[in-house]
Nucleic acid binder design. Structure first.
Length: 694
DNA sequence: GAAGAGAGCGCC
DNA sequence: AAAGGGCGCTCTCTTC
């Protein structure tokens, strides 16, 4: 019936229009004419001409940039940063630099600046972004926001010169290099100079252009002009504003071929093309979609936590004279006056951290209060509790930073969803009619370490299911009952958690480069026992120890560690490899490759999710938290599981990956279907406070 | 007064 | 001599 209606509509529509559209024979556009000037596009006719030229000329790529303002005032983080709600973006101008290369190496640029306030031009822009060329921008995220705000689809082929510069310089200027001990004053001075040199290193468009020898004409007026758009009213754009807008697109267009060359030379071209540049869109989309938070719960929780915190602080002050629990100095003075200070001594320093407070909890009645107050203020200080971060669409749009780490992982901030306290996770909720689910890879870094370092024993154990159980079954053979030697992983995990945990610590120890002393600390055992355990453990993986050592050495000589796709993390300089460098030279290939496969999977999911109106909410290093309509929730879960497994297998065919889905409670983000951790924690706190405080 | 270091919490 | 990789964020305290 529905179909029939559509059909009759169409027939009716057709009869109104003229029978056959006239073919409009195009007159070739003069390339010289367009190459000479910046075309400011305000009318449909001008936009049509632009599209015609783009169709007629043999282009290679298109640089683009947008100018915009925000309609919401933004949240001031500190003196240097203010964060704006991406959904309140108001696109003003789009600039394009279409590049036509010549055979001899030169080329011609056609520059257009389009007034985005005229919505009649959008159908023409849609055609532009369907052109099969690379679209190059510097920090494409905001450009994508502008397109999405206008309801335009992005090009499937984005090149982000900012992200490329980040990828190219991973590991350079790492902060740990500047705190190395300098032997004399001269070295200290030199070090300081070095650091201030590095401060100047920037990924900005101007700085990047300089590195490639591209002249950027409007360097000195850039800041002023950028600002002029942020406070733009409705007035006509000035000639200078239009020129500036075009200049950024031109710079992006010019830097692209030079970056491609550089990428090839640095061995990361394929990595960039296959994974990193697609992730620009995926990552921006995650930020654009944002997450919904439970405002009511946040309000009530804040109230309760604040009142608890106040009560504790009052008690600590009234009874013990401690006025600031955050002050290391004051705590040291206080415990000194009680004669307990020596109980807090560790490695020659005094510490009042969580662990040592826990150890000393029974020594003094103030200690449980300190612990509770700390946790309460930490929870209260999380930016997820701040309603100012909620955008005009009612959702929170954190800053998801691509290549935020030197291994290639993501970071997030304002709020930091990737580091969100477990008990605060249920504050993340779905829209009406939607559900939240999570799928994570099981022990993915272990599998990747096994594959990268070609240790067949470790690969086999990974493939057997629960890798740590498999290890424990071999390692503790003589301590186990005959029947339990072949127990399935998940059953073994329940029956022998202690054995399994020891194996887990050892395994992560390999990946992170632990020492026997470190292992002894985590397992709370003696150095000798830890050493024996670790040595015997390594005997299970005869190839691994050697490969790790030789990897550290060769990478040290070469100057960088490398993921499976060739993405490099550089040392500051050649020479003796420090312990820390050795650790990350062997860890980066594992962590970095995991990040690569994760992005690859995310890129695929993003495309597949579209037809289900689903979205990735949080990319959590080895897990995707997604939001999907309830009527296709299972289907989306299935797709997520499938894609994650397949992608990992494509990168590492020798692995048989497993994923775990948490879809037990789709009404909020949670762990193991437990949505009330926060409430329970608060309840327990209140009960214990009643006992302590009169 | 701003900026950075350090301690300490949280996450994978 | 230190002693596990990668982070964000808040608070205190010191330094320039």
């Amino acid at each position: 019936m529905h179909l029939l209606n559509q059909w009759t509509d169409r027939v009716a529509g057709a009869s109104i229009k003229s029978v056959v559209p006239m073919i409009d024979y195009k007159i070739p556009k003069s390339p010289e004419y367009y190459a000479e000037r910046i075309m400011f596009v305000e009318t449909r006719e001008e936009a049509e001409n632009m599209v015609d030229l783009a169709y007629q000329r043999p282009l290679s790529h298109i640089g683009f940039d947008t100018e915009f303002r925000y309609d919401s005032p933004g949240v001031v983080i500190d003196k240097r940063s203010t964060v704006f709600d991406p959904r309140s973006i108001r696109p003003l101008l789009l600039s394009l630099a279409m590049t036509e290369p010549f055979g001899d190496g030169g080329g011609r640029l056609y520059r257009f600046v389009i007034d985005l306030r005229n919505r009649e031009l959008l159908p023409h822009l849609r055609k532009i972004f369907q052109l099969p060329y690379h679209f190059c921008a510097h920090y494409a995220k905001v450009e994508l926001f502008c397109l999405w705000k206008l309801g335009l689809a992005e090009s499937p082929c984005i090149w982000d010169s900012f992200i490329f510069e980040k990828a190219l310089h991973l590991g350079r200027y790492h902060h740990k290099y500047k705190i190395q001990n300098r032997k004399d004053e001269m070295q200290t001075i030199l070090a300081k100079e070095e650091v201030s040199e590095k401060k100047k290193f920037s990924y900005s468009l101007v700085a990047s252009c300089q590195r490639y020898g591209i002249t950027y004409a409007m360097e000195n007026s850039k800041e002023r002009l950028q600002k002029s758009f942020l406070i733009h009213g409705g007035e006509k754009f000035s000639k200078e504003q239009i020129e500036y807008s075009a200049e950024d697109a031109v710079a992006a267009a010019k830097i692209f071929p030079l970056q491609i060359d550089k990428a090839a030379r640095a061995g990361i071209l394929r990595h960039c093309e296959k994974v990193e540049m697609d992730w620009v869109t995926t990552n921006s989309r995650i930020e654009w979609d944002g997450v919904r938070v439970d405002v009511g719960k946040i309000e009530s929780v804040t109230k309760v936590l604040e009142s608890c915190k106040e009560k504790i602080k009052k008690q600590l002050y009234d009874e013990y004279g401690i006025c600031n629990i955050q002050s290391h100095k004051q705590l040291a003075e206080f415990f000194k006056s009680c004669g307990l200070l020596n109980k807090f001594k560790i490695k020659g320093k005094y510490s009042f951290d969580k662990e040592i407070l826990k150890k000393n909890v029974s020594l003094h009645p103030s200690i449980p209060l300190l612990r509770a107050a700390r946790r309460a203020s930490d929870l209260l200080a999380d930016k997820i509790m701040d309603p100012r971060f909620i955008g005009v669409d009612g959702r929170v749009h954190a800053d998801h930073r691509q290549l935020g780490t030197d291994t290639g992982r993501q970071t997030s901030r304002w709020p930091n969803f990737l580091g969100l306290d477990r008990i605060l996770r249920p504050l993340v909720i779905p829209e009406e009619g939607y559900g939240i689910g999570e799928v994570d890879w099981s022990q993915v870094e272990v599998g990747i370490a096994a594959a990268i370092y070609h240790d067949t024993a470790l690969i086999d154990m990974f493939n057997s299911g629960d890798v740590y159980s498999a290890m424990a079954q071999k390692f503790f053979k003589s301590d186990l009952l005959e029947n339990d030697l072949n127990l399935p992983g998940h059953e073994f995990k329940k029956k022998y958690p202690k054995f399994r945990n020891q194996m887990k610590s050892c395994t992560l120890g390999i990946i992170y480069g632990i020492t026997p002393i470190g292992l002894a600390e985590t397992l709370r055992t003696t150095k000798n026992k830890a050493t024996t355990l670790f040595d015997q453990f390594m005997e299970m993986f005869p190839d691994l120890k050697y490969v790790l050592e030789s990897t550290a050495q060769t990478s040290g000589i070469r100057g960088y560690g490398c993921t499976s796709t060739g993405l490099r993390r550089y040392r500051e300089k050649l020479g003796r490899v420090s312990r820390w460098e050795r650790n990350w030279l062997t860890n980066h290939p594992v962590q970095g490759s995991a990040a690569v496969v994760f992005k690859d999977a995310g890129n695929r999911l993003m495309k597949l999710y579209k037809r289900y109106d689903a979205r990735i909410v949080i990319p959590l290093h080895d897990a995707f938290i997604f939001e999907a309509p309830m009527d296709c929730f299972e289907k989306v879960t299935e797709i997520t599981e499938h894609v994650m497994c397949e992608t990992l297998q494509e990168h590492f065919p020798e692995l048989h990956p497993q994923v775990e889905a948490n879809i037990f409670l789709p009404t909020c983000w949670n762990k193991d279907g437990d949505g009330y951790v926060l409430e329970r924690w608060i309840e327990e706190l209140e009960v214990s406070l009643k006992e302590i405080i009169k």
